[in-house]
């Protein structure tokens, strides 16, 4: 039987969406519903993984498999899932505090591996679920209303960090440009390797600086005629990285949206694994048969054969 074509509405669960009215996240899930429908994503083979914070609930609002993990740990959970079943389509939704604060070590480590998955960062500059403290994306000197004093810590540049960490697809989008975001998500999913999308997203309750108006006035889309982020040759990697980093420091008055860096040449972690373990992609850990009628597949003879180095016969 031909499976019925799922619509965007089919990718929405009936879990009540309890984000604040007007939340910047609405646009993110809306774009996901549409992107998943357009990509005909199989709900059982698509996994939305989230951390803690407002973004954490994303896993419950999308009608695919959802794994709502720990604060800062969405990436290692996701890698365990993806590496033991590389056929899965894995989308991570995590906040800026989650990825760049408590989970920064994991963020850098994923880039080094280039595991084939998508990281969607909900970039709202604040820790909303705990009353709006400064997130690592909030610039020094800024004072959203929940802060008593202006922020005295510098911000991380997520795009530059992703590029230097080794992510092979690095983009920025904005939750209020749903078509742009949807297309960026689809591009990121199609990309082979670790893809990072910095998604600008106003927190309507705690951040009175980075509002819809603020972003609407500043964002612009990078256009193909004067911007080429794609690495075509390995010799180009460094130059394209430098170009992306320079562009990423263009903020405040004008905020570019689009793909900053795209490198289809670096092998994915899965490819690196299958190079030394040729059966890996065909029969990954989750698909391995480990028993036969309740017995281990390693019988006595095989045990002796495998572990001969440890066996001494007297």
């Amino acid at each position: 039987m031909e499976p019925k074509q799922l619509t965007a509405a089919d990718y929405r669960t009936d879990v009540w969406n309890d984000w604040c009215p007007g939340c910047g996240n609405f646009g993110i899930v809306a774009a996901m519903y549409q992107a998943l429908a357009e990509m005909k994503a199989d709900p059982a083979e698509t996994v939305v993984i989230s951390g803690i914070g407002c973004s954490g609930k994303t896993a419950h609002f999308v009608n695919t498999t959802g794994v709502h993990t720990l604060h800062g740990r969405s990436l290692p959970f996701a890698q365990g899932i993806k590496l033991s079943n590389p056929a899965l389509n894995v989308l991570i939704n995590a906040g800026d505090g989650d990825l760049l604060g408590i989970g920064l070590g994991h963020f850098v480590a994923l880039g080094r591996r280039n595991v084939d998955l998508v990281v969607m960062m909900h970039d709202n500059t604040v820790y909303a679920l705990t009353k709006g403290q400064a997130a690592p994306t909030l610039h020094r000197g800024e004072k959203p209303k929940a802060l008593n004093e202006p922020n005295i810590q510098d911000s991380v540049n997520p795009i530059a960090l992703a590029v230097t960490s080794g992510y092979t697809f690095v983009a920025r989008s904005y939750s209020s440009r749903i078509n742009h975001l949807k297309e960026t998500i689809k591009q990121a999913v199609r990309h082979k390797g670790s893809a990072f999308i910095d998604i600008l997203q106003p927190c309507v309750t705690f951040d009175d600086i980075h509002t819809y108006d603020y972003y609407n006035k500043r964002v612009y889309e990078l256009k193909a005629d004067d911007w080429n982020p794609i690495v075509k040759d390995e010799n180009e990697i460094q130059q394209k990285m430098m170009q992306a980093i320079a562009k990423s420091f263009e903020v405040d008055d004008r905020i570019p949206l689009g793909v900053f860096y795209e490198n289809p040449l670096t092998p994915t972690f899965e490819e690196r694994l299958s190079e030394k373990l040729p059966s890996y992609l065909g029969t990954p850990p989750s698909r391995e048969k480990i028993e036969k009628n309740g017995k281990t597949i390693v019988d006595g003879d095989k045990f002796v054969e495998i572990f001969s180095q440890f066996i001494v016969e007297y």
Binding site: V67, R73, P76, L83, G105
Partner: peptide, 20 residues
């Protein structure tokens, strides 16, 4: 990269059916 990632990735693998 650390033991937090070690345990959480092993849990992730376990959800997919791999003994981890």
């Amino acid at each position: 990269e650390d033991e937090i990632a070690a345990v959480t990735s092993a849990i992730g693998a376990s959800l997919t059916g791999a003994r981890s």
